[in-house]
């Protein structure tokens, strides 16, 4: 399947590591030029784990280049439309336009809605929903000239259902689906598709951190990954604790490929079967 993305110009947000890094490298492996964007900040208010760093972002760009693709590392906070327009414009200029936009950047925090601080709520909506809008707003105009324009946004199974302790995350991820379906309708006449991938748990820092272990094993004082694995698995239908980043990349690359040219406004759950219990 090599070369599916030959010559395509790709932008991946949240590209410093995790799913975003993997998508970037996989696109490059199939022939694409890839710009990766991340906040490159050690921390963000309310978020209990470190965010993608500049060093990690540059490492992703090196991995992209090692696959033979042109690479660009962009630093911007997706909460700022001005920063996004500047960074994305820089990538679009370097590549001569954009074909594929992967709206991947996101955070996860925990808390019950009844006691959630305004800051926890606000940061979540600003990053995971408004950040996705800012990304689309900054990048899509650069895709109008593309012959194979594709937007793929990362939502979640929490974007199709309610979930305790992540009500703000669920609200943002539901909102993202509404935005992408609307975007799909607006872009359909231009031949650009817009779709959503909905993962369940994925083997990244968003899952593998102490706050996450504690959420899944509230019965333990200091739960480890090993303690949390059975609880992770209990959420899923196929008997695994989480998908690999490569599994999500498989679906993202499919949606970005020529083979998915007539799929738009869809939510594709690469979700270990959690979706089988849903609509």
């Amino acid at each position: 399947m090599s070369g599916r993305c030959e010559g395509r110009r790709v932008l991946v947000t949240g590209g410093a590591r995790g799913q975003g890094r993997n998508h970037a490298v996989r696109f490059a492996r199939e022939g694409a030029d890839v710009a990766v964007l991340d906040i490159a900040a050690a921390e963000m208010e309310t978020v209990a784990y470190p965010l993608g760093s500049r060093a990690e972002l540059e490492e992703t760009a090196e991995l992209v280049a090692a696959e033979g693709g042109r690479a660009a590392a962009l630093v911007a906070d997706i909460r700022s439309l001005a920063e996004m327009e500047a960074a994305v414009g820089q990538a679009a200029e370097a590549f001569g336009g954009l074909d594929i936009l992967v709206v991947n950047a996101g955070i996860c925090t925990f808390g019950e809605l009844a006691t959630m601080s305004a800051e926890t709520w606000g940061t979540m909506i600003d990053v995971n929903l408004t950040g996705a809008f800012n990304t689309v707003r900054a990048a899509v105009p650069h895709m109008y000239g593309s012959e194979a324009g594709r937007v793929v946004a990362t939502s979640s199974m929490a974007g199709r259902a309610g979930w305790e302790n992540i009500g703000h995350y669920a609200a943002a991820k539901w909102g993202l689906i509404g935005m992408v379906k609307s975007l799909a309708l607006e872009l359909a006449p231009r031949g650009i598709t817009a779709n959503v991938v909905c993962p369940s748990s994925v083997d990244t820092r968003m899952m593998k951190n102490e706050a996450s272990y504690k959420l899944f094993r509230p019965d333990l004082e200091n739960p480890t990954l090993e303690d949390a694995l059975p609880a992770f698995q209990s959420v899923n239908v196929l008997p695994v604790p989480y998908a690999e980043t490569d599994d999500i990349s498989d679906t993202v690359l499919f949606l970005a490929s020529e083979q998915a040219r007539y799929i738009t406004g869809a939510t594709l759950s690469a979700a270990i079967g959690v979706n089988a219990k849903n609509i």
Binding site: L185, A188, T193, L238, I263, A266, L268, S269, A271, I272
Partner: peptide, 13 residues
């Protein structure tokens, strides 16, 4: 391999 119980629209939007 991680997709099951899903209905995928190939439906022109």
């Amino acid at each position: 391999r991680m997709i099951t119980g899903e209905a995928v629209p190939v439906a022109l939007g």
